[in-house]
Simulated scan of single mutants.
Amino acid sequence: MVSSVNVLFSAAQTVLIVYAHQSAGSFNAAVKDAAVDALKKQGCNVLVSDLYEMKFKATATEEDITGAVKNPEHFCYGNETMLAWQEGRLASDIVDEHKKLKEADLVIFQFPMYWFSVPAIMKGWMDRVLTLGFAYTLEKRYSEGIFRDKKAMLSFTTGSHETMFSSNGINGDMNVTLWPIQNGVLNYCGFQVLAPQIFWAPTHLSSEAREGLLEGWCARLQGLLNEAPLTFPPVDIFDEEEGFQLKPEVREKHAESHFGLTVGHHLEKPLPPHNQMKAGV
């Protein structure tokens, strides 16, 4: 007879939280801690990469490779790190993160939004850890990506109110802001991208309101692993021989649609609402 403990262990999923905030007393830290607690209670194995605590190196340089580089006169980071990965010559901090990524079923990026993007230390994690060959190749990307059996999501705080990130707001549409990260990094590597968790301007809220945000996050975490991902176009609707343009039959099919396909594939039409914010919209 198999015990319930063994069943739980065999079904357990691993979640990697890549966390970037300098202060353990921050709201981002509280969000991270809430996720660790809630996911562990569900039986998940939770790994945390606390980038500032780790003093993670943000710059992609020759130092990421042990031994000689192939072409020192014209150093190409992508090609050189791919070769180093194949030969087991990558820096130890990259190798450690590769091990975590291999284990992870879900990756949560937890951060405060800096200049409409991720903090530099987290961008450095993406630059260095999502190594060519390990995380993507020209043949294995987007819907055919290496990480297509894994999920990923952004969870972050903003300094501005939600109204300021609307299509009529001074910051512009948050869907547009998220496209380069969610499509250009996560979807590119094949991840199934879950809708982001956005904490709008928590520094402008009361402590009671911030507690309410945390309660909402904890409620979402209860079903997070079963959520449907955002929708991105599959590779096979693009014609490689025509420079990866949408196939004519796809364009014809959507000719009468009021909205474009996605934020990026808008077909010179209005952007589909909430395309980078909610699944199934």
Rank of each mutant, 00 (worst) to 15 (best):
H98S: 04
G159D: 06
W125G: 03
P196I: 05
H265T: 10
A34V: 02
R141P: 07
G145C: 10
S206I: 04
P119L: 06
Q22P: 03
S160V: 05
S206Q: 03
T131V: 10
S49K: 06
P248K: 14
Y19P: 00
D236Y: 02
T66L: 12
H254E: 10
S167M: 03
Q222W: 03
L8I: 09
R89Y: 09
F156L: 05
F75T: 07
C44R: 02
F191W: 01
A228S: 04
E62I: 13
K55R: 11
A30H: 03
L186C: 13
C189H: 10
L47M: 07
A12W: 12
V95A: 08
R89T: 00
G67H: 12
A120M: 05
S160P: 06
G243K: 08
N79M: 08
S206A: 06
K100P: 04
S143P: 11
C218L: 07
N175D: 12
D173G: 06
L214A: 01
L267S: 07
V18A: 00
L83T: 08
V15Y: 11
P272R: 15
W125N: 07
V107M: 13
E53W: 05
C218I: 02
Y77I: 07
Y188K: 04
D37K: 00
F199N: 02
A279C: 09
G264N: 13
V5T: 15
P270D: 11
A60T: 08
Q276K: 14
F259E: 02
K253Q: 15
L130T: 12
L90F: 01
I181Q: 00
Q86V: 08
L8R: 14
F147Y: 08
C189I: 11
N28R: 02
Q42Y: 02
S10C: 14
S49G: 02
N187D: 10
E139D: 14
K278P: 10
P272C: 15
G243Q: 06
N28K: 09
K269Y: 15
Y136V: 12
K57G: 10
D236K: 14
I108E: 03
L186E: 02
E256L: 11
L224T: 05
T81K: 03
N175Y: 03
H265C: 12
E62C: 10
W200T: 06
L221S: 01
M54S: 07
G43N: 00
A120E: 03
